[in-house]
């Protein structure tokens, strides 16, 4: 298996996914199937093909530097699970 269970655990941690052993085993299989597909892609002859980073054939889509009206604060905070004094409130991350 190209992808080990440890790698699945690592990626899950980075993505903040709380998976049990059975889920990890299932994902390991799915990820390996995906990686297998990339192996197929790697077999395609790309001689003379320019590398690209984007799927659309567009460059330089820019906006002029003009300020617009922002959101009303109430709208911005409306979906927040917790807010106070105009701030989004989250659990304390760093303990002093």
């Amino acid at each position: 298996m190209p992808i080990s269970l440890d790698e699945v655990r690592h990626v899950a941690r980075l993505a903040r996914l709380d998976l049990d052993e059975a889920e990890m085993l299932a994902l390991q299989g799915e990820l390996n199937a995906l990686i297998g597909h990339f192996t197929d892609i790697q077999n395609v002859n790309v001689t003379g093909v320019e590398p690209t980073s984007h799927a659309v054939n567009m460059n330089n889509v820019w906006a002029e530097d003009e300020a617009d009206d922002p959101f009303a604060r109430d709208s911005a905070l409306r979906n927040a699970p917790m807010s106070r004094a105009g701030l989004f409130v989250v659990p304390t991350i760093i303990e002093d």
Binding site: D65, A67, D68, R73
Partner: peptide, 22 residues
């Protein structure tokens, strides 16, 4: 700049929190 990098919210220092967001 007058506006943010990827949206047109105004750029300024200080001010009331979450009043320059979109």
């Amino acid at each position: 700049t007058r506006s943010k990098m990827f949206c047109r919210c105004p750029v300024a220092f200080g001010g009331e929190p979450n009043t320059r967001v979109c």
